[in-house]
Amino acid sequence: MDSHLVDVNISKSFGKMDVLRDIKFDVKLNEFLVIVGPTGCGKTTLANILSGIETSTVGSVTMRGEKINPHKHNISLVFQEPSCIPWYTMLQDVTSGLCIKGVDSKTADARGREVIKLVGLEGYEDFFPRQISGGMKQRVAIARAYATNPDLLIMDEPFGHLDAQTRYLMQIEIMRIWEQEKKTVVFITNNIEEAVYLASRILVLTKLPATIKAEYPITFPRPRELTDPAFLELRAEITTQCEIVE
């Protein structure tokens, strides 16, 4: 099988504080891997290490056998915080990754408009971040991450700052986009319902120092029904897993 894309085997500590301990898992091609964990368990650190902008203390992240490196690999990261660049128009922001990777501006603009359309923001190409809503900004961040057609798309609690309604719409949206343009996604969240709704596989992290506690392949057909008994049962099980005090 060619299904193997990323291998992770890392530990991370800040000074004396262990944040991630022996985190070992792999990411398969085109899967939607969701990592859930309680708040403050080092999920953002994990996302930053996966994307190569932060380094692990021990071990490494490899993609197709090669150590992860933003200069070489095509990775995108959707940040938890609103991350639009204030002095970029939406189109400039969405195409920034393409420009960095040396794509000519005409091709970049065309692709930029395409992904802006994909996330439903056409008509706002020349708007600055201050002129659009929080939900729209997060879509811009997602469009920016998609524009480069990444081999690995990491999403770090991308909907954490959104209100419940927008969040729900964004989940449907991200599922639609994922089914349309198959991508390998690592999605990090503390919302278990969101995890079960989106994932093809779930990894559960413990509290600090985070280790992997459980793994659940999710085989429910899509689109998933939030009120389906099997869905609710699994959601309850993972919830207990997440909150058990050791």
């Binding site: 190569g52 902008i53 933003p70 070489k72 995108s76 990261l77 991350s83 660049i85 960095i100 920016r144």
Partner: peptide, 9 residues
């Protein structure tokens, strides 16, 4: 903002 562009190399 620095990290946004760093991820892209």
């Amino acid at each position: 903002h620095v990290n946004v562009v760093k991820v892209f190399g």
